[in-house]
Amino acid sequence: MQNVILAIAKQAIQDGLEHTSTIDTSALLKQNPKFAEAKATFVTLTLYGQLRGCIGSLVAHRPFLDDLIHNAKAAAFDDPRFYPLSPEEFLHVKIEVSLLSAPEAVTYHDIEELKSKICVGEDGIILQKGTRKATFLPQVWEQLPDFELFFSHLCQKAGLEAGCLKNHPDIWRYKVEKVK
Rank of each mutant, 00 (worst) to 15 (best):
M1N: 03
N3I: 00
N3G: 12
I5S: 04
I5V: 15
A7S: 13
A9I: 09
K10H: 15
Q11D: 05
Q11I: 00
A12D: 04
A12F: 11
I13T: 10
Q14S: 06
D15N: 14
D15A: 11
G16A: 02
E18Q: 13
S21W: 10
S21D: 13
I23Y: 06
D24V: 11
D24L: 08
D24W: 01
S26Q: 07
K30N: 10
Q31R: 13
N32G: 04
N32W: 08
P33Y: 01
F35S: 06
A38I: 10
A38Q: 14
A38Y: 15
K39S: 11
F42R: 08
V43M: 13
V43H: 07
T44A: 11
L45Q: 02
L47W: 09
L51I: 13
R52E: 10
G53W: 10
C54V: 12
C54F: 13
I55L: 09
V59P: 01
A60M: 08
H61F: 03
H61P: 00
F64Q: 00
L65R: 08
D66N: 13
L68P: 09
I69D: 14
N71Y: 14
N71Q: 11
A72K: 10
A74P: 01
A76L: 03
R81D: 02
F82T: 07
F82C: 09
Y83V: 12
L85N: 05
L85I: 09
P87K: 09
P87C: 01
I95S: 00
E96K: 04
S101N: 03
A102P: 02
A102F: 03
P103F: 13
E104Y: 02
E104G: 00
T107F: 07
Y108R: 05
Y108A: 02
E112K: 08
E112A: 15
L114C: 05
K115W: 04
K115R: 15
K117D: 07
K117R: 10
I118F: 09
C119E: 15
C119H: 13
V120I: 13
V120S: 00
V120E: 14
D123E: 06
G124C: 04
I125S: 02
I126E: 01
L127E: 09
K129E: 15
K129I: 02
T131I: 10
T131N: 12
R132A: 07
K133N: 06
T135D: 01
W141H: 02
E142I: 12
Q143G: 11
D146I: 06
D146C: 14
F147D: 08
L149D: 12
S152R: 15
H153K: 11
H153I: 01
L154E: 04
L154T: 03
Q156N: 03
Q156A: 12
K157Q: 01
A158W: 12
A158F: 09
G159E: 11
G159W: 12
K166F: 10
P169A: 00
W172S: 06
R173N: 06
Y174F: 15
Y174W: 05
Y174L: 02
K180P: 01
K180I: 14
